[in-house]
Design a protein around this nucleic acid. Structure first.
Length: 497
RNA sequence: GCGUCGGUAGCAAAGCUUGGUUACGCGAUGGACUGCAAAUCCAUUUUACGGGGGUUCAAAUCCCUCCCGGCGCUCCA
């Protein structure tokens, strides 16, 4: 099955091709670690984690590079405020990034280069650009001159340079006073006091914002690579700047074969931003919701479309994720009980039984459809619809009074099915150990347990005596504590709302 | 203004490239189960495709046109 990928430059889905057969070179713009990671980051890196995982599932050898922009105004300002080194601010937020991404089952990239470690490559690239007269040295820095390659303007945004020329004027801001033209952008900024700085042929300073990605991709991949990803907002100017820098430096075009951009996270219909005060860090969201719930919710929309982040959005994710984990646990237990960790593929169930044969057939069909959905520009929403159908199928079949051997074999097949799609491809399954483990004790729950236990004993007595009003009164009392009681065949179970 | 992405049932969100069959989920309603509930399961929720034209045997899907939103054009995933 061919993989189709939406390419921002060509503005349509195209067949995915690689420069080198079987190998994928993928670069995704990483964070500027000046503050803890927010939901926008979660969306971005979960989206590209899906790309990463699916390409590997399809047998590609993927090299995934993601940078950290650890030299930047905001980091420097933060460091100066706190009176610490810029690198300490960066380090702290990079740690936060790793920890929340790990929690959300985001697989690590192969390389995480940092600006502060790529200075030589950056300087070399700027030198070449100066030699080729695509850049010039101004009063306060070195700039890339857009008019030296006007044909590259608007590659990702469709903007027309003539229109921008016409609309120009009075836009040369304070940060770029040495610019010859307002469209030009900084490659190197000369040092100001209290700033980290490195020596260069043009004077001490630090890199401009865009150049590091060009230098890093050149360093790891050479002149061209297969996928470049990032948030929607990076299309312009950042990604277009990369095209200018890299292609003008190497003379090779196109720099990137497939440009991929993920959509935004909005909150209540508005763009999430610090200034609007509707800002959520990932850690904050995780105080209320499990990391995999967050991941599930994010995958419940197509990666290119905007998400409107709301309570409902997460509650839906929680419910779906809960059903997924419940079914997974059920299948694990049915497959081999406690030895489930060491599952091996058992013979297929006896297909002589009609219902079972039908069920297996359904799962095989759903597996195909799921793969097709992922092949269609990573349509996780569609894939989850197929997974839902599979969960229902699995759950029904397991509950349908199969013979013991058939049940175990079917459960094993079901476990493998779920691990292939929900697990490896979408990253939504916990480990087998975690899936089988008792849920971690909620401190609130531990606190309430003695009281609840006592009330449940009283209620059991009332029920035994068929004193329903008394039993219901106790249930109401529990409800007031936020406790929901569920009577099961094994006795009452309770949970906190 | 220029650019770009979108407008799909009560809510939410796939499908549009390659026209012809159901999305999936939430909610609601009914049923099974229960002392009653909860949880779970089953079923129903069908002139769903922004308006208007056009092409076609057939349009959510292709073409034209209009209306309405989001976002980008300054730092942002």
């Amino acid at each position: 099955m061919p993989l189709r990928v939406h390419d921002t430059r060509r503005r349509k889905k195209v067949d995915f091709t690689t420069i080198e057969p079987g190998k994928v070179r993928m670069y995704v713009c990483g964070i500027t670690p000046y503050s803890p990671s927010h939901l926008g980051h979660a969306r971005c890196y979960v989206s590209f984690d899906i790309v990463h995982r699916w390409l590997e599932a399809k047998g590609y050898d993927v090299t995934y590079v993601q940078n950290f922009t650890d030299v930047d105004d905001k980091i420097i300002n933060k460091a100066n405020e706190e009176g610490i080194e810029f690198s300490q601010v960066a380090e702290r937020n990079i740690e936060d990034y790793y920890s929340v991404m790990d929690a959300m089952n985001v697989l690590r990239a192969d390389h995480y280069p940092r600006v502060s470690e790529t200075i030589d490559g950056i300087i070399a690239m700027i030198e070449t650009l100066l030699e080729k007269e695509h850049a010039y040295v101004g009063d306060d820095g070195v700039y890339f001159h857009i008019e030296s390659a006007p044909e590259k303007y608007g590659m990702l945004t469709g903007q027309n340079i003539e229109a921008v020329r016409a609309g120009a004027g009075g836009r040369v801001g304070g940060t770029g006073s040495g610019k010859r033209d307002h469209k030009d952008f900084a490659l190197w900024k000369f040092a100001k006091p209290d700033e980290p700085q490195w020596e260069s042929p043009w004077g001490a300073g630090r890199p401009g914002w865009h150049i590091e990605c060009s230098a890093m991709s050149l360093q790891y991949f050479g002149e061209q690579f297969d996928i470049h990803g990032g948030g929607e907002d990076l299309r312009f100017p950042h990604h277009e700047a990369e095209i200018f820098q890299s292609e003008c430096c190497t003379g090779t075009s196109p720099l990137v074969h497939h440009w991929m951009h993920n959509g935004f996270v909005n909150v209540d219909g508005e763009k999430m931003s610090k200034s609007l005060g509707n800002f959520w860090t990932i850690s904050q969201a995780m105080e209320q919701f499990e990391p995999l719930t967050l991941r599930h919710a994010l995958l419940n929309a197509h990666y290119r479309n905007p998400i409107d982040f709301s309570e409902q959005f997460l509650e839906d994710g929680k419910r779906s994720q809960g059903r997924l984990e419940d079914t997974y646990r059920e299948a694990l237990l049915a497959s081999d009980g406690g030895a489930a960790k060491n599952l091996t593929t058992l013979p297929r169930p006896n297909l002589g039984e009609e219902g079972l044969s039908h069920s297996m057939g359904m799962l095989e069909k759903l597996a195909e459809e799921c793969a097709m959905a992922m092949d269609d520009d990573f349509n996780t929403r569609e894939a989850l619809a197929k997974i839902n159908a599979a969960l229902r199928q699995i759950s029904n079949t397991l509950g349908n009074g199969l013979g013991e051997d058939d049940k175990r074999a079917f459960a094993t097949y079901a476990v493998e099915w779920m691990e292939e799609f929900a697990g490896q491809a979408l990253g939504l399954l916990p480990s087998r150990d975690d899936a089988l483990a008792e849920p971690a004790e909620d401190p609130r729950r531990a606190e309430l347990a003695p009281k609840v236990g006592e009330l449940l004993v009283q209620r059991a007595a009332a029920r035994e005596a068929k004193d329903w009003p008394a039993a219901d009164a106790i249930r109401d009392e529990l409800a007031a504590l936020g406790v929901t009681v569920m009577d099961t065949a094994e006795g009452p179970v309770w949970e906190l709302d």
